[in-house]
C-alpha cells in the first residue's frame, strides 16, 4: 500500500508540468479568496486574451528551447511581422496575402538566426541579441517610429486574427489553443518531435544515429519566429494598428513562461502544455494582483520571484522523480 502510494507520487512527479500546474492552482486559490471578482467569466476571458499573445510566443520559444537553443529576437519579430502585413495591406494587397507575407518575413528571420548560429557556432544568446537589435532598429527606421494603422475597410480578416468572437472571448485565445495542440502533437506524436527532444537532450547521440542536427535547429528557429509573428498579428487584429515598439522585452517574458512551465535552459526537456500553463500563470498573476488591489507594479516584482522559485522547484521535483 505504502509502496503503491510512493509509486503514484513518483509517477505524478514525472509529469513535467506538475510544478507549474500546482503553482497555478495555488495562485488561483489565493486570488479567489482575495477577490470575489476573480473567479468570474469576464475576468477569465480577460486573462485569457492577455495571456494569448504571450502564450503564442511562449509556445514557439518552448519548441525551440527543447532543441537546446533560444531566441531573444521574438519580441522584435512580434512587431516586424504585423508591420510588414500592415504596410502591404495599406498598399492595397489582400489582407490574407499580407498576412502570409508577414509570416514569411518572420520565417526568414528565424531561418537567418538558425543559419548564422550553425555557420558561425556563436551562442544563440549573441546571435539573437544581434538580430533583436537589428530588426527592432529596422522596424523603427522603416516606420519612422510612428504606429501604423490599417486604413482599409476589409476588417473581417483582422477580426479572425484578434477580434472578439463570442462571450467576450477573442480570436487570439483560439489561436493560442490551436497552437498549443498543434505543437504538442508535433512534439509528442511525430518522428520530428522525437528528434527535437534528442537534439536538445543529447546532440552527440542524435548525430550518431544520423539525425541532421543543423536542420532540426533551423526548422525550430523558423517555427519559433513564425509563432512570434502570428502573435504579433493577433495584437494587430485587436488594435487595428501596430506600434514599432510593440513587444519590447516580450522575449524575456516568453522565456520566463517557458521556464516556469518546466523547460530546461539546456534543452531536451519540457512541454508545450507547460508553456501554456506558464503563460497563463503570468497572466493570472497580472490580473489577480490588480483585482486584489495591489498597484500594477507589484506584478513585475512577483513575476521575478515566481520565475526563480519555479525553477528551483522544478529542479527539485525533477531530481525527486528521477532519484
Amino acid at each position: 500500500m505504502k509502496q503503491q502510494l510512493h509509486k503514484l507520487i513518483v509517477k505524478l512527479l514525472r509529469i513535467s508540468e506538475i510544478g507549474s500546474l500546482s503553482g497555478l492552482l495555488i495562485i488561483v486559490l489565493v486570488f479567489s479568496l482575495l477577490s470575489e471578482h476573480f473567479l468570474t467569466w469576464t475576468n477569465f476571458v480577460g486573462i485569457f486574451t492577455m495571456t494569448a499573445e504571450l502564450g503564442i510566443i511562449a509556445i514557439g520559444v518552448t519548441f525551440l528551447m527543447i532543441s537546446g537553443e533560444f531566441d531573444l529576437s521574438v519580441g522584435s519579430v512580434f512587431a516586424v511581422a504585423p508591420m510588414t502585413g500592415a504596410i502591404l495591406m495599406n498598399s492595397g494587397i489582400s489582407p490574407f496575402f499580407s498576412f502570409l507575407a508577414g509570416l514569411f518575413v518572420a520565417a526568414l528571420i528565424g531561418g537567418l538566426n538558425g543559419f548564422v548560429l550553425i555557420k558561425t557556432k556563436i551562442p544563440s544568446f549573441i546571435v539573437t541579441l544581434g538580430s533583436m537589435m537589428f530588426f527592432r532598429g529596422l522596424l523603427l527606421a522603416v516606420s519612422g517610429g510612428f504606429q501604423i494603422s490599417y486604413i482599409g475597410q476589409n476588417n473581417s480578416f483582422l477580426e479572425v486574427l484578434g477580434g472578439k468572437i463570442f462571450l467576450g472571448m477573442r480570436a487570439s485565445g483560439i489561436w493560442f489553443i490551436i497552437g498549443t495542440i498543434f505543437f504538442s502533437y508535433i512534439l509528442n506524436r511525430t518522428k520530428y518531435g522525437n528528434h527535437v527532444f534528442a537534439v536538445g537532450g543529447n546532440q552527440e547521440a542524435a548525430k550518431a544515429i544520423g539525425i541532421n542536427v543543423s536542420k532540426v535547429k533551423i526548422i525550430n528557429f523558423v517555427a519559433c519566429s513564425v509563432m512570434a509573428g502570428l502573435a504579433g498579428f493577433t495584437m494587430f487584429g485587436r488594435f487595428n494598428s501596430i506600434d514599432p515598439t510593440a513587444g519590447l522585452q516580450l522575449e524575456l517574458e516568453a522565456i520566463a513562461a517557458a521556464v516556469i512551465g518546466g523547460v530546461l535552459l539546456t534543452g531536451g526537456y519540457g512541454s508545450i502544455i507547460g508553456a501554456f500553463i506558464g503563460a497563463f500563470l503570468i497572466g493570472i498573476l497580472r490580473s489577480g494582483l490588480i483585482l486584489a488591489g495591489a498597484p500594477s507594479y507589484w506584478y513585475k516584482a512577483f513575476i521575478g520571484i515566481v520565475l526563480v522559485v519555479s525553477v528551483i522547484l522544478n529542479t527539485k521535483i525533477r531530481k525527486a522523480a528521477t532519484g
Binding site: 513585475k300 521575478g304 526563480v308
Partner: peptide, 19 residues
C-alpha cells in the same frame, strides 16, 4: 540555477521594486 534565470528574475524583481 542558471545565471540567466537568476538574473532574469532579479531583473523583473528590481524593476518591480523600483516601480
Amino acid at each position: 540555477i542558471p545565471a540567466f534565470i537568476a538574473t532574469l528574475g532579479m531583473m523583473t524583481i528590481a524593476r518591480g521594486m523600483a516601480l
